[in-house]
Amino acid sequence: MNSVILATVSRLLTGVLLVFSVFLLLRGHNLPGGGFSGGLVAASAFVLFAFANGFPAARSMLFFTPHVIIGCGLVVAIVAGLAGNLAGLPFLTGLWDKTPLPVIGKLGTPLLFDLGVYFAVLGVTTLIVFSLGEDGEEEE
């Protein structure tokens, strides 16, 4: 697809969408949002960028391969779950820092877990969309 307007707008929008996805991730514990919706919005940012500027450009903007992002997300989620075990409690027990922070609320392992979900969703979605899209480009 070659559209100057889309290409220009996508540069702006991608950034906005990524910031919005982080916002969704952070507010997710007590309000609508969270790792899954945040990850999807982030993935849609990259997909939009890919539509406007081609899949190779989007891949290089993503920097890591989707596989690695999925792996990192899972590692973060596992670590968040294991934190409970380190404290002598069952797997996945939420541990909270008592002091509230502005915007985020309180810090705790559930946020870390959400971060893992965010990256896993981002990785899976970009993996599927990129492989489908690149398939389509080869055919043309």
Binding site: G84, L89, P90, F91, L92, T93, G94
Partner: peptide, 8 residues
């Protein structure tokens, strides 16, 4: 029978 309560 072993039981683990996830998330306590």
């Amino acid at each position: 029978i072993e039981v683990v309560r996830f998330g306590n």
